[in-house]
Simulated assay, not measured.
Amino acid sequence: MKPSVKDFSLWCDFIERGFLEQEFLQHINEAHFMGATSNPSIFANAILHSNAYQEQLKNLRTQPNLSPKAIYEALAIEDIKLAANALSRLYAADKDYGYISIEIDPMLSEDTQKSIDEGKRLYETIGYENVMIKVPATEAGYEVMGALFREGINVNATLIFTEKQAAQCAKILDKNAKTNARAVISIFVSRFDSAIPTPADNLPKLGVLNAMLCYEAIEEVGNPRIRPLFASTGAKLKGLNPDYYITNLIAPHSVNTAPLATIEAFLSAPQERAIPWLEKKEILKQISQIDMGKSSLESIQQTLFDNGIKAFKESFSQMLAKLGSL
């Protein structure tokens, strides 16, 4: 692995059956990444646009009365099992590595008990210890992630946009850390820089600086089994180095989950940071100097969170509708 920073690792933010059956294990063996993540949008894109699912779909259609969600779960669980099995060697060597995550139905994001029940069911059905159940940081989600973590289920707290969210997730998980389960708290990064005017020097900073604040809030809790994870790290702005959101967020005791192309760009490029890691006072100072147009940081954070929840729900609904019409 290229980075030499202690306890920093890359995970691949991509799931697709053909990839899992072919290149995935090679990337693991070559230490390109040490874990993987998924979300409803990734699964929707994979299932609806890849031919690799056709045989299983054909078999599922022969089973009577299967709902679109049951079909989706059968497909997704098979992918998660493939990934978990491939990553199991890393997990066996060190319980901090070798994880794959699957998200609870985003339609349940405000239903505490149904989310807890689904999280438990998914974890038990998949049957691999190195699976993380992904829970969005809604008001209901805080209780869900605590309940799952308390029972020894690994948790990926997701859709983190604010320092307050990051701190609340870390405190709840720490309070419920009754077992040796592991958790990551997924801080979304690049979306901030698409939400504000492009800076004159074409070096967006808000996403990175906000992520630094969230990282510090998590690390202040001081639980070694709860790590910050930088997510949404593909470079979307024109002219930006593809590995920008990796090189700027290499920190101890952290994970960066990125698209495969972003990881490959990072591993093949010289390692350097455009923004040095800063103390909180300096982070806040630099954030205050950023042109956010007519918006405030708080309004941008709320909009990005709302849009994130909405996007996952829409992707999930569209996928279920398509599966139901096949």
Rank of each mutant, 00 (worst) to 15 (best):
T198G: 06
S38K: 05
R273L: 10
A170M: 08
E272C: 12
A269H: 12
D105S: 12
F33I: 02
T125Y: 04
L48C: 11
E151V: 00
N39C: 05
A137Q: 00
K310T: 10
S288I: 12
T247N: 13
A147K: 15
S109C: 13
C12G: 04
W11Q: 08
S67G: 00
N154K: 01
D243G: 11
A183S: 10
P252Y: 00
D111P: 01
A166V: 02
Y91K: 01
M292Q: 04
C214W: 00
I104F: 06
K285V: 07
P204K: 14
D193T: 01
Q302P: 08
A181Y: 00
A76F: 00
L66K: 09
T62D: 15
N59I: 12
N29R: 09
I116G: 03
K313A: 13
E55F: 08
D174L: 01
A167M: 14
I196E: 03
S67Y: 03
C12V: 01
A251Y: 14
G308E: 04
T262V: 06
L326F: 12
S325F: 05
L304W: 10
L206M: 13
S325E: 15
T125P: 08
L25K: 13
E23W: 01
F33D: 00
I263R: 06
E21N: 09
S288A: 11
G222D: 09
E110H: 11
K322S: 15
L209R: 08
E16L: 02
E139A: 14
P136S: 07
H27Y: 13
K236H: 05
N51F: 04
Q113D: 15
K2M: 14
D94E: 03
T257N: 14
I77T: 05
N202R: 15
M34L: 14
L10E: 05
G324P: 01
D111C: 08
P259V: 14
A200P: 07
P252D: 09
S299H: 11
N307Q: 15
I187D: 09
D306K: 14
F316N: 09
I116Y: 07
Q22W: 04
A147M: 05
I290K: 08
S190Y: 13
T62H: 12
L203C: 14
D79H: 04
H27S: 15
E282H: 11
E282F: 14
